[in-house]
Amino acid sequence: MSYISSVVLTVRAVWHRSIRPALVRDTVLLPLLGFSVILALWWSVATFFTHLLPTPMEALVANLDYLLHPFYRRGPGDLGIGWLLLASLRRVFLGFLLGSLVAIPIGFWIGMSRQAMLAINPMIQIFRPVSPVAWLPIALAVFNLANPSAIFVIFITSLWPTIINTALGVSSVSQDYLNVAQVLEMPCWRQITKIMLPASLPYIFTGLRISLGIAWLVIVAVEMLTGGVGIGFFVWDEWSRLNLNSVFLAILVIGCTGLLLDVLLSQVQRWVTHRPATIR
């Protein structure tokens, strides 16, 4: 009896100390409430308009195969959703990496030089509002292949936010830090690597996170147009087969992956800058 009561006491103590009720409410209960409201809405709509939508339960059952076997290979073009996701991620990473490698130096350059800013800024302002998908025909004409064209579009997508934020970060490096560098007689190159780069890293990461977020938005649209293997074409393909169940699954997978990408990048930011990712 005393054993049971001590267990109860321990559980209660742990509950109050480590898994605080308020924390559980904020991180588990309230988000769950939000999801269940949406789910209930979907369910009620699907129940009344059966020809429009599958109910959540029907969608789950229909997608069970995808969920249980994400990495199946059943002949050419018939791949599990995990493979499709990896193919899309590969395009995004390649384009994003190339874009960042170009954008960060350009951002640095226009952040440091007024002339460069005046020369390049108008171009950026004109290209930035253009939907990156509009570059696809040009890319297709140049590369003649779907895959490099998709990567090129992601490359273009990744340029603008990173350039703009890097330039902002570099041009707003505190004069105090530059005074320290000058008093210590740092050569120009070391001022860039030792002072300006670390000082503007938070801004650069903000740019990178916006870029990656938009790139993940754009890849779905690009793949719908180019076809091939990828989560975006999967969405279009399933719609063509009037299989809305899989479209619901795809939306959920795309959303979770986007969230994961942003969380990962903010972890990298925390690790690189030694400071929590507060911006944005």
Binding site: S174, D176, Y177, N179, V180, V183, L201, R275
Partner: peptide
């Protein structure tokens, strides 16, 4: 002529 700055001017990433 090393300076001690009013607002410290420490580099926050170090």
């Amino acid at each position: 002529r090393m300076m001690v700055f009013q607002h410290y001017s420490l580099l926050p990433w170090l």
